Structures are given as C-alpha cells and as structure tokens.
Computed example of a mutant assay.
Amino acid sequence: MKHTKKMQVFALALLALGMGGCGNVSRNVANDGHAAGELVWPAPEATTPMHKGGTFPNSADLRQVHAGLNKQQLSALIGYPHFSEGVWGVREWNYLFNFRKADTSEVTVCQYKVLFDENKLARSFYWKPESCAALLEHTSPVAAAPTVPAQQKRVLSADAAFAFDKGSVADISPVGRDELDKLASQLRDGDARIHIAGYTDRLGAIAHNQSLSQQRADAVRDYLASRGVSANRMTSEGRGEAFPVKECPNGSRAQLIACLAPNRRVEITVRE
C-alpha cells in the first residue's frame, strides 16, 4: 500500500513537471514550427535548479537532432529543456549548453532553442549567439575525444554549387566544380576520413528538403570520387533544414530566400 502511494506521488510529480511552466517564451510560434513572430530567449541564469549553469552536451548526440523528432526522441538525445517553459504542452524548448575547446580550459556558453509544430514535432533550431553552431565541429564537450581543426572543414554554398532546386552531379555548376577539383587534389592521398553533410533552408516541404540535402551530399561525394578520392573514405548525409546558421524574420519571399542563403550549404569535414 505504501509502495502504491509512493508511485502515485511520483506520477503526480511527473505530471506537474510536464504540465507546469509558463508556456512559450517566444511569441506567435507558427503552426508549422518554422518561425516565430519574435524569438525571445530566457535569461541564462533563469534555468531550473537542476540545470543551473547549463550542461556539457554530447556533441555526437546533438548532431543527430533534426526536424521531425518528437519530444521523447529529442529528450533521448539532449535531455529535457533547461528552463521552466514546461515539457509536453508547449511549442518551444530552451537549453543552456557549455562547450569546452580541446586541450584548453576555456568554456563557451551557448543557448539553444527548438520550435515545434502544432503536432509537437521539432521543426526549427536556433543558437544564441549564431556562431555557436560551429562549435559542434570545433570543440569537445568533455575534451575526451579529438576534434576536427577548423581548417579541415570546408563549407560550399549550395546556391553557388548547384542550380536552383537541383542536386545531381550533372547539376553542379562550373564554380562548384572548380572548388571541388581543388579539394580533390588535396584529398586524393592519405587515409583521412571525409564526411559530407548537405543542408537546406526552412522553405519548402520537409520531406523534399531532406531528399534534396541528401542528393546534394551524394553528388559531392560522387564528384570527389570521380576525381580520384577513394569512395571508401567518404560518407554522405542529408540533414535537411536542421542546424540553421542564420536566423531570418518573415518577410517577402525574395527577401527570405536571400536572407536564408547561408543555411543552404554543403559541409565537408576531413578527419585525420
């Protein structure tokens, strides 16, 4: 009987956690979760007591966050939100993350925001400051594993490398081919591992963006292979609209397309 009462109390505590909080911090989160009328960030010192000072996330898990995850899947990767907006009934989760640079004691504190659509699926992701997005590649949360030096990561503008809304090898522009030819000449020798990740902006259907990002990553891989880089050393991944590096307010379509250009990219990471 006592055991049953304890379980009931525990269940009520979990319910209070899930339903509690003050709701969304940002204003007018869009039904599709791709934007908000105004992004508002909680004060870093306003974390819940158990998350005081933020956490050191697992970078490998954080890289797996992408659009379409439900809240249970997201929490399995990076935990529940660090602030008191609530858990189940809200359309926004906020985190306070610490990143430690490899071989140093220097720590960078970043805020991370996830917006959900009306079905409570993760749809858009934001960093404050925006430069924190790059820390996933250049820092280690616990300095336990080697990180990739900045000079070994190349970012190609998808707009410059491909025709609009195209993603095959045949669609790679002359500018894109020149860039990849230069890169191939540096990567032919040696045994470095090469990971190619494609990204889109938040415009368009999620399934289409995911497919296009994968197609472009595969095209870059295949082009490098045609220039003598061993295919066995390369992997490719489409990340759709995940991990935007630029936040843009809603406006005319032309303005929004121009503003979101940095998010349309292909990242090539070389690991020695």
Rank of each mutant, 00 (worst) to 15 (best):
P129I: 07
K6Y: 09
M234K: 07
A16S: 12
S131K: 13
D181T: 04
A144W: 03
R233A: 02
W41C: 09
L156C: 04
R188W: 00
Q73S: 09
A161Y: 04
R264L: 06
K153P: 00
P146T: 04
S230R: 11
V87G: 02
L17A: 12
Y80C: 05
H34Q: 13
V40F: 04
R188T: 11
S173D: 01
A134R: 10
N250I: 10
C259D: 05
A46G: 03
A150V: 15
P174N: 08
R202Y: 07
H195T: 13
P49L: 14
A160I: 02
T108W: 10
A43Y: 01
I206K: 13
P244H: 04
K2M: 05
Q186K: 15
R227N: 07
S59H: 13
Q64V: 09
T235R: 11
Q152G: 08
S226V: 00
N58T: 13
G37W: 02
G21L: 08
G79N: 11
Q73N: 03
G68K: 09
L212D: 01
Q152C: 11
E45C: 00
A261W: 00
A143C: 15
I257L: 03
V90K: 06
L115H: 08
K120W: 12
Y199R: 05
D191V: 10
R233G: 01
D32S: 02
G167A: 12
S168C: 02
G89M: 15
S226E: 03
D61A: 15
T147S: 10
R193M: 02
F125H: 15
S213L: 12
L115R: 05
Y126D: 10
A13F: 13
N263R: 00
D103C: 07
R154K: 11
L96D: 02
A35T: 14
W88M: 15
L183S: 00
A134K: 12
R177T: 01
I206S: 14
R177H: 00
Q72V: 13
A145C: 06
Q151H: 12
D178K: 14
S211E: 15
C259W: 03
P262D: 04
L212E: 06
R202G: 11
G18Q: 06
F83Q: 04
R188L: 01
N31Q: 12
G21F: 08
Q152R: 15
G238V: 13
M50W: 13
A161S: 15
A35P: 04
A161K: 03
D165P: 00
P174E: 05
P49R: 13
A46Y: 06
K153L: 12
L180P: 01
H66K: 09
D191R: 13
R193V: 05
